[in-house]
Amino acid sequence: MSHYKVAAYITAYQEIAALNKTIAAITKQSYPIEKILIIDNSQNQIITDNSYEKIIVDFHPENIGVAGGLKIAVDWAIQQGYDFLWLFDQDSEPNSDVLEKLLAYYQWLSKDKNIGIIAPAIFDINTKQEFPGCVFQDYKLVPFPGAATIQSFYQCDAVITSGSLININAAKCIELPRADLFLDAVDYAYCMNFRNHGYEIIVVKSAMMKHRIGNYSLVKDRFKKHINTFSTFICSPSRYYYACRNHTFLETRLVAKIKLYRSIAYRIKFLIMMMQRIIRYEADLVLLKLWACIVGTFDGFRGKLGKTW
């Protein structure tokens, strides 16, 4: 295999234990990482011991979000002359051979494919199930059909940030990540930048990574009190706001004008489904979470972005 100059990037926020697990998994890779850039968005800096020579910490107590950190990291990797930047959230645990497999597949596939991002298969720590890449169908992003049955690799339109290996030569040719998205769908929007410029997004099935997708908690259906508690994801009001806003913004901007009405109808339908779910399962701040979904959806329609919640 050719020698590549690879750096890693982690977005950190409050949870030092999760961050340390991710750092440990990165440093144990069979293919060596040269540097690890960490954007620490915590109110109080969580990394106080920076004795590990490969780690660079950039502290942002004002919280620039996933989007702001990702923009800094990609620009930094370009300026430093890296071949690849490996992206992570703080709650990811790649197997020790993941980077080696991603680079091997890149070297093989790049002979006849213009690869912008190559990513591992993601397995949700909470559900133990695979979380596939997405494709854009008509007016919405949907999970890649049949991803679980594929043995080697597949091409899609978007993958989550964590685990994604960015081809820096390709990144030089497209727009940097949008800092004004702040949180949620930042990865999907950045992937679509690559796709719009003719670059491929590849998922390698044999490269496997565990990742915590959302926070789960035991809940009860307030309308069916005879049913026992069960585990499902819960969100803060701010997360509901940015999720509704950014997915609405992204999908309604990707869709062809002739199908825009279908995209708008789908986002309103999704809003109603989310509100119903909050009413049934969320234990606290119900009204605020409902308001967050409503405001987020309509801010997405009108393109009001930034750190607005």
Rank of each mutant, 00 (worst) to 15 (best):
S231G: 00
E62Q: 12
F223Q: 08
L85Y: 02
T11R: 15
S206C: 10
N20M: 08
Q80M: 08
L109G: 00
H3I: 06
K5S: 05
L288Y: 00
I258G: 01
V66M: 12
S110W: 06
G69S: 03
Q45N: 15
I39F: 00
T48Y: 07
G81V: 08
Y266M: 07
I272D: 08
I279G: 01
I47V: 15
G65S: 07
L305F: 00
Y31T: 06
A25Q: 00
D187M: 13
I268V: 12
R212I: 07
S236Q: 07
N95W: 10
C156S: 03
R195N: 03
R253D: 02
L19Y: 10
I117C: 05
G163W: 09
T308D: 14
A158N: 05
S162V: 07
F249D: 06
E130F: 09
N50R: 09
A256P: 04
H60V: 14
D184P: 00
C134W: 12
I166R: 05
Y281E: 11
S51T: 06
M274Q: 14
Y190D: 11
I168C: 04
V203W: 04
R267F: 05
L285A: 11
S217F: 09
D49I: 02
F88S: 10
F88G: 03
Q155M: 13
L287H: 01
Y216D: 03
W76L: 08
F136D: 12
T149F: 12
I150K: 09
D83C: 09
K210Q: 14
